[in-house]
Design a protein around this nucleic acid. Sequence first.
DNA 1: TCAAATCGGACAAGATCGTTCCGATTGGGC
DNA 2: GCCCAATCGGAACGATCTTGTCCGATTTGA
Lengths: 170, 170
Amino acid sequence: MRLSSLTDYAVVMLAAAARHCGGAARLNATLLAEETGLPLPTVQKLVSKLSAAGLIESARGTGGGFRLSRPPAAITLAEIVEAIEGPIALTACVEPSAHECAIEGDCRVKPHWNVVNGAVRGALANVSLASLSSPIPLARGAVPIAVETLGDTPSPNPSREREGNLVRNA
Amino acid sequence: MRLSSLTDYAVVMLAAAARHCGGAARLNATLLAEETGLPLPTVQKLVSKLSAAGLIESARGTGGGFRLSRPPAAITLAEIVEAIEGPIALTACVEPSAHECAIEGDCRVKPHWNVVNGAVRGALANVSLASLSSPIPLARGAVPIAVETLGDTPSPNPSREREGNLVRNA
DNA sequence: TCAAATCGGACAAGATCGTTCCGATTGGGC
DNA sequence: GCCCAATCGGAACGATCTTGTCCGATTTGA
């Protein structure tokens, strides 16, 4: 239930790019690497994936670089996640490709996964890059926030630590 | 953005348990392993985690077994996910433990992650185990389904295949 | 006292993730 | 018209995590 680190980095990088004249100016990977604190090769890889997904337009050669292909308000978090990690699919069931789940027709759980998957994707699609780069977090009315029993479960398996993440500035 | 396989198996296992007299009868791991097609050691590991999380009550010794500690309608999908994978945290930012994200106070993206994380968790908390084991998927009114631009992005990186999943019956 | 069943830890195999390096391509300067 | 510099793009490597399995310890009923 965690996004990959690359997705996290991509959000930070795109948010930084959105603050540069709303994506109108042309940026290069070196500049953004210095600004965000991410390693340059990592930024380059992100640029590759985001360009392949159509979220940014890149130009090669001297003085080249890239810029957002759309205004930040028209880019959703769901698109960023899908650009880096592929289609949003909580389980193998909801992916369109064929899977060898025995007695797929009789599975009573499978139909529900599509609903849950759509709900999760909707939560991500409600967040735009523009709101992500704004200084104050505005709780959108369309996003349901349900954190009722968050302090009940006292960290079932606290052995799941991953401290080795890259230091980043944003 | 994908749940682990063990979480998928836990849902299948609990849904099968819920269908046994609503969790009133006492079950054992061997019976459920045969019924779901999951390997017995995997079911045993799941029973351990779910018992530690308080979702099921287990009794040792001859004639022992386990049963749901609550009615299926009172167990949510979010709780199952947290029991197996730990707290729901899309990024390292939203976890309560301290992280060395440089200039955390100046990060403009971090506050938004809490909102997004709550929305995703809310989508999972709206699904109960009872609805998960019902034959017909009822789209709950509280769950926002937004799949507007699902066919636009033509599978950015289709190399993400994971076919080696266990065959399961549900 | 024995048998049945859970509980906990340990282990190897596999896949995935993150990083780094190097080649291909393009545009400007001479 | 040619060369050089700067950049994107793809491939490969190592590290880390997850997964699946097994075995011994503990507990309870017959």
